[in-house]
């Protein structure tokens, strides 16, 4: 048998965007054109609008979400020359340890999580603390579609079209005091619906906590997402409200948020607490700083096939250096990983 060892510089067949994805890109363009045309029609006529992305499972969106859909700014941010990960993969290959540590566990176990009604608490160093029902919390914001690369710390990656609004808009609305230096997020703790939180062997101290520096949170790329692929978030992807910070490893993008606090001190985040030598507070995607146990120089872009490992170079700040590099000038990223 002839075994061919390709050179690193060779581009292989696997790197060619599959025709179906290429075509779906076209249908996406077509759909957005159609969307423009349809936007003028009354709501009842729109009900039959074809799904924007291929093979998207219909959800059961809350009323407030459906009301916001016509006003969405589609493709407000896009990625150049990248195929969007199929919906099935983005929703059946997840790290959401509250529902189990296997990639398929969240899709299997998250279905029963009640996401409506949902309450979000805003507290800490803010002028306007409060407890909000999600529909009230969402009222001021127009949704935008942000198509972002997602790079997991485990060295796999996807491209996902999120629906959300800039985190900076929320921060302005809650009026941070001068003492607010960091923002802290907390995921729901609900062992009844989250089997992972019942595991006696979990190293995680629930609830899951993440955080950002204020200037990071104010960066226009940082969003709070409530939907993806033109629909509301599936439970396994962090319904009903999650963070998306595309220049950081996926674990920073905390899911199913119930509490947002503005704080003076840098919050201790979940992964930092478990293994401080492996996961830092910043967790910026950085091909030059390895995870102690594996390299971060490359990533597997999913879906990958049996004969197409689809391994590619990881980009600094996941390709968002232009937008975010200035946040870290003067900071030693080897120490502040």
């Amino acid at each position: 048998m002839l075994i061919k060892f390709p050179r690193a510089s060779d581009s292989s067949e696997s790197e060619v965007t599959p025709e179906s994805l290429y075509l779906s890109r076209r249908s996406l363009l077509g759909a957005s054109m159609a969307g423009l045309a349809i936007a003028g029609l009354p709501a009842w006529a729109r009900a039959a609008e074809a799904s924007r992305y291929a093979d998207v499972e219909a959800g059961s969106p809350p009323a407030w979400f459906t009301e916001k859909l016509p006003g969405v700014r589609w493709q407000a941010v896009n990625v150049q020359g990248e195929a969007i990960t199929p919906f099935k993969d983005a929703t059946h290959y997840n790290n959401f340890y509250e529902f189990g540590t296997d990639k398929g566990d969240p899709a299997e176990n998250a279905g029963s999580l009640p996401t409506s009604p949902w309450t979000v608490v805003i507290d800490g160093e803010v002028g306007k603390p409060g407890r909000y029902a999600l529909e009230d919390f969402m009222k001021p914001y127009q949704l935008e579609e942000r198509i972002y690369r997602l790079r997991c710390v485990e060295a796999w990656s996807m491209v996902i079209p999120w629906l959300g609004f800039p985190l900076s808009a929320l921060l302005k609305a809650v009026e941070p005091t001068s003492r607010a230096k960091y923002i802290r997020f907390e995921t729901l703790q609900d062992p009844k619906h989250m089997p992972g939180q019942r595991s006696g062997f979990a190293l995680i101290d629930w609830p899951y906590v993440e955080g950002l520096r204020m200037d990071e949170a104010m960066n226009p790329l940082a969003i709070l997402a409530v939907g993806m692929y033109g629909r509301e978030l599936p439970n396994q992807n962090g319904a009903p409200l999650r963070l998306v910070v595309p220049w950081k490893y996926g674990f920073k993008s905390v899911k199913s948020i119930v509490r947002i606090s503005l704080v003076a001190e840098q919050p201790q985040t979940t992964w930092q607490k478990i293994a401080p030598d492996e996961y830092g507070f910043y967790a910026n995607v950085n091909p030059t700083v390895d995870h102690p146990r594996w390299t971060q120089a490359r990533e597997r872009r999913l879906p990958s096939g049996l004969f197409s490992p689809n391994v590619r170079e990881t980009q600094m700040f996941n390709g968002y250096a232009e937008e975010v590099a200035s946040l870290y000038t003067g900071l030693d990223l080897r120490k502040n990983y």
Binding site: T85, Y93, W156, M158, L302, P303, G305, L306
Partner: peptide, 16 residues
């Protein structure tokens, strides 16, 4: 397993 990977039954990251 090889067959499952072949028919895409192992999810988006069959190699892993």
């Amino acid at each position: 397993w090889l067959y499952q990977a072949w028919i895409f039954a192992l999810g988006p990251d069959p190699g892993k």
